[in-house]
Computed example of a mutant assay.
Amino acid sequence: MRLVGITALAIFVLDQATKWWILHILSLDTRGVIEVAPPWLTFRMAWNTGINFGLFSGQADLTRWVLIAVAMGIVLFVLVWLRRDPPGVPGLIAGGVLIGGALGNVIDRLVYGAVADFLNMSCCGIDNPYSFNVADIAIFVGAAGLVLFPGDDNSPPARRKKRA
C-alpha cells in the first residue's frame, strides 16, 4: 500500500503544480488561450463544474458537492479493493495514479469551485473543443491500468474460494 500512496502523492503534486503554473505563472485564466504547438497542443482555459465534457454542469454548487462525494467514495472504494485483493505492482501503481488524479480534481472543486482544465489537443483536421488536465489523464490511465493489471490468481485455494 506504500507504493499506492507514493504514486498517488506524485500524481497529485504533478497535477496541482501544473495547474498552479497555468493559473499563477501563465495567467491562463485571464488570457484564455496560449498556442503551444498548434493544433497538437494548445493551452485553453476551461472551468469544468460538471464531469467529462462538461456533463452535469448545471446546478453548479449542488453538483460540486455531489461530485466531491462521488470522487471521495471512489477513492475509498479503490483503497479498500487494493487492500483486500492486492494486485501486482502494475495494479498498485495504477490504483495510485487513479487516486492521485481523483484527489487533484477534488482539491480544484474545493479551492476554485470547479476543475481547472487547460490541455487541448487536436489533430488531423479534427478540432477538439474540449480541454482536460493531468488529473483527468491520471484517472483514465489508472482505471485502464486496474482493468489491464488485475493481478494474478496465485493466492492460496482457501482465498480463491472466497473470491468466486
Rank of each mutant, 00 (worst) to 15 (best):
S122E: 03
G100E: 09
G32A: 07
I126G: 02
R31M: 01
N105S: 09
W81Q: 14
A102W: 05
R44G: 10
S57N: 12
S131M: 13
V78S: 05
N133V: 05
D108V: 09
N120S: 10
P90T: 03
P39Y: 01
V89M: 14
L79M: 14
F77C: 09
N105D: 09
P39V: 00
A69L: 14
N52I: 10
A102N: 06
A114I: 08
V106M: 10
N48R: 10
A37Y: 04
F132P: 01
L110I: 12
G104D: 06
G125S: 11
G100K: 08
Q59L: 15
I126R: 07
V75Q: 01
D127L: 03
V75T: 00
R64A: 07
T30K: 13
P87M: 03
R31I: 06
I99N: 01
W81H: 12
V106R: 01
L55A: 14
G54W: 08
M121F: 10
P129S: 08
I74A: 12
V66Y: 15
E35N: 15
L110K: 11
E35H: 14
V115L: 08
I107E: 10
G125M: 00
W40R: 00
I74M: 09
L110S: 13
V115Q: 02
N48C: 07
A46Q: 15
Y130A: 07
N105L: 09
S122Q: 10
G88K: 12
A37N: 08
D108R: 10
P90E: 00
M72C: 14
N120R: 11
L67D: 03
N133H: 07
A46W: 13
N133Q: 02
W47I: 05
G88M: 13
P87Q: 00
R44T: 13
W47M: 14
Q59A: 15
A102E: 05
D61F: 06
W47P: 06
A46R: 12
G50E: 05
T49C: 10
N105C: 10
